[in-house]
Design a protein around this nucleic acid. Structure first.
Lengths: 363, 363
DNA sequence: ATCGTTGTATACAACGTTGTAAAGACCTGG
DNA sequence: CCAGGTCTTTACAACGTTGTATACAACGAT
């Protein structure tokens, strides 16, 4: 608090700027800038002298200044509900990696799925700090997003907002849910339950997966019993565990369950185990997302595996296009998915199983 | 690519800046700035006029300019090996939350545990973009860090670098590992194995936890058998699964295993399950980190639970102090931990299969 | 030798913001 | 009604960088 802080050398403390390098190298500031930016027309001799000065002073460009000058920051934000939900963590890793390939830095925002916070994000809480936004909203509706005034380029992830105003990259939720449910029906299960229904208007994922589930029941000639559709407050393990318990407490429990994400399924598995219910003998379980945990669960979890790698890559790609100035109409990109059948529906493999890492995927 | 892009209105496209607001409100640029920054001496009338203009134009301050002017960005970086390792994901969430309380934005860097990348991070790859760094290095040694030339404030997380040049916030690894191992010994286990030893010089965590494990064996009067110490390449489930398989293939397999983190333990559990080994009946398993997965594993996982909340909070706190200019000597802060005993050592709870906790004492 | 032509280096302004210093408006008390 | 103070607002400069325009040097061709 005292003064500007001559904690160390009074002068040396200052950050090194172009001017310092220029002085040491005996050239103009702009020449140093040119060297830093790889401008072609610089004599090898000059370049060498400048580079030596840069090294000697350990010069680092001031990004704030550069950004101010250039009007962009090279930073994009990734806004997700929570980082420690495995699906989003995996996505975050992939987005950061994809962004890096384009020399973009990722700033991570956690909305907690909270509507007010999501609105702030959409409204550009980080405006001018970021050049673009990859957003995975939970609570916002299509109208909310359409009403957005901030014009930072945005790409929506993993959620389908009908006629949204922005690009979105998604998996074919209805089809995928149908495939998973049909898989359960083809095992001969007659009472296939669903865990993960949600009421509120923004619950796009829940609605689509529920639709796929119902389509599959119809296609398989099974009756639709709304008592077998378990709503949840959120998509965490605990919700899945509770929902499973409620289903088991019914007079006519299900013989299969399709959970709208893997965390719900893992919670359900836990309840089944505690109750001594055999999986998949008594009840088969399938999930959605293919998070790593599912590959090590007991039993390993059958699940819909979206191509997350591509999800991330395409999102960054679309965003980069818009950041570069392209302004096509909102696009909807679908990434592939596949059903990965594991023990929770197919049963335990023969005794000697070598490497569990090989279960399901290349790893 | 064509031109600068009159995709919309040729003029309206420009971002709104202070000047625009000032013009509309009929005041000077500085007055608008004063309003934005909550400067006290502004007439209510003026303030109202300015605020109206701000709303009308939807003005957002340009952070690059503000940062340039003020010499700081309000952004800190969190550098961790991988975001989809649950421990780091949880930590990331907590750090982001703690940072938010101080109006700091977090930028996440993934090093992959790669030495070159960690060096870049330490050397200030984001210099001038960030005001501080919270770093959880995997491959760097204390010397590497001491040799760092960048002077961005830094706090090290969860890793103990001896006599490091920076603050670090850590759990008492040796003590915690000792407690966990002693817990296994007190169950009556005689052949307690360890999974997670690592050779390379930077593996501080592995070394400390191994030391704690050995101390506990000595304290319990158990012989130290190096054949029971399983090295791993990394700390993922697959490594734990493989290491467990190797231990089981020995002529004299262990009757308990202390894994140096929960992922290793989860991998080990998977192998045990596949081999039909009863946990904790035949082999008791304990981990470290208390990640959520462990609470839903089969059986639920006994583990050392570091106070991650405090870990994150203290790290941000120390960093903020240094960013504010304080320059005390490097500090080492210890956060509390506790041993959470669950089914993997205590046995299945009574619920479904009446099975008293004493089941853990079978061997 | 002179003229372009190309290649190299420079000065200056500008990006949008805020700190400084100072000017203007307004009040109080003599 | 004015001196002296406080409150409010302003002009200007500066943060570090890069685009533009331009000066200067070196060159081959006339």
């Amino acid at each position: 608090m005292a003064d500007t802080g001559p904690d160390l050398e009074p002068e040396d403390r200052r950050r090194v700027v172009l001017k310092d390098v220029a002085a040491l190298a005996g050239v103009s500031v702009k020449t140093v800038s040119n060297v830093v930016n790889g401008y072609v027309h610089v004599t090898p001799a000059t370049r060498a002298r400048v580079e030596a000065a840069i090294r000697e002073l350990n010069y680092r460009p001031n990004l704030s200044a550069r950004n101010l000058r250039q009007g962009r920051s090279g930073v994009i934000a990734l806004a997700v509900p929570e980082l420690d939900i495995p699906y989003f963590a995996e996505l975050a890793r992939l987005v950061v990696a994809a962004a890096e390939e384009r020399s973009l830095t990722v700033l991570v925002d956690q909305t907690g799925g909270d509507r007010a916070r999501e609105q702030l994000v959409a409204e550009g809480i980080r405006a001018h700090l970021i050049d673009g936004l990859i957003f995975s909203p939970l609570a916002l509706t299509g109208e909310d997003l359409a009403a957005r005034t901030d014009d930072t380029p945005m790409v929506l992830l993993g959620e389908r907002i009908h006629h949204g105003p922005a690009d979105h990259v998604v998996v074919r939720n209805v089809e995928a849910a149908r495939e998973a449910t049909l898989h359960l029906a083809r095992l001969g299960r007659r009472r296939v339950a669903a865990i993960g229904a949600q009421d509120h208007p923004a619950a796009g994922t829940a609605r689509l997966r529920l639709a796929g589930y119902r389509e599959a029941l119809a296609a398989a000639g099974l009756p639709a019993d709304d008592g077998l559709v378990a709503p949840v407050a959120a998509y965490h393990r605990a919700d899945g565990a509770r929902a499973m318990a409620r289903l088991l407490d019914r007079a006519d429990p299900p013989d299969a369950v399709f959970c709208f994400n893997d965390l719900l399924a893992l919670g359900a598995l836990r309840t089944l185990l505690e109750r001594g219910v055999d999986v998949p003998g008594d009840i088969a379980v399938a999930g959605f997302d293919d998070i790593e945990d599912g590959r090590y669960a007991t039993p390993t979890l059958t699940t819909v595996a979206p191509d997350k790698e591509q999800l991330a890559r395409r999102a960054v790609e679309l965003l980069a296009e818009r950041m570069a100035g392209a302004a096509p109409a909102a696009r909807e990109i679908h990434v592939p998915h596949r059903l990965v059948v594991r023990e929770s529906t197919a049963g335990r493999p023969a005794r000697p199983a070598p490497d569990p890492a090989a279960a399901g995927r290349t790893s």
